[in-house]
Amino acid sequence: MRIVVAIKQILDPEGITVNRRRERIFINREERIINPADKCALEAALRLKDAHGAEVIALSLGKPAADDALREALAMGADSAVLISDKALAGMDAPTAAMVLARAIERLAPFDLVLAGQTAADTGGDQTAGRLAELLGLPQVLQALELSLDGGRLQVVRLWDGKPVRAAVSLPALVAVSPLAPPARYPHGARIMNAYRQMQVSVWTAQDLGLTPEELTPNIESRGQVFPPERELGTVVEGPPAQMAGEILSLLRMRRLI
């Protein structure tokens, strides 16, 4: 079985502070990590590999620095890694990114399963997986939590409007893994060194994938940022427990938390 996992390298959101009053975004600590949902997807692929044996190919699209993300994937247990990196790809929008990834995955054919993260923690994007399924003509299962292989069919536990449901699909298929799926393993120290010393990350350019400049023209523009109002500090109330519980519940209802 061949599994392609698409991963994206992002700036760690924990290292970024947003000052709503001054309407500024501060990057306190510039650390690049694998997008959490994508890391869960990688973990799901490696679990399938552990249980049934599989060749796991990590694929990323990004700056040359994304090499580190792919080395991390290799250290975790991926068998090979491909980085699509090209100056021509800088500043591309979500539709273009999905198209470029789809081209690269086609080039990696034959494959049985394509895995991707459901959402991007930085841009909040929630469309690459669905777009890939359409572009590759694959059936899709989104918001997956657990994957298992039963005969030739993939059994998936997924979230549907917040509730876990079961789904089954025959391969080849695309599965998008939820960031709520089991967290990823830590790579073994020796494997980390190995990933840098002995393993290779292939680099593909726009030309390798036969992409033309017209295809890469971005069509989405930003009209600036909006900052939600700064959090207002609430009141302190005092009274008998029953009344206090009522106060709490009415706040929860107002904020639509229940």
Partner: peptide, 21 residues
């Protein structure tokens, strides 16, 4: 269409537009 999308899990929003498509 002017779309206000959340960034960094809703820490701030960005307004996006696609003028031609």
């Amino acid at each position: 269409l002017l779309a206000t999308v959340p960034r960094l899990g809703g820490e701030y929003y960005e307004i996006l537009i696609s003028p031609s498509l």
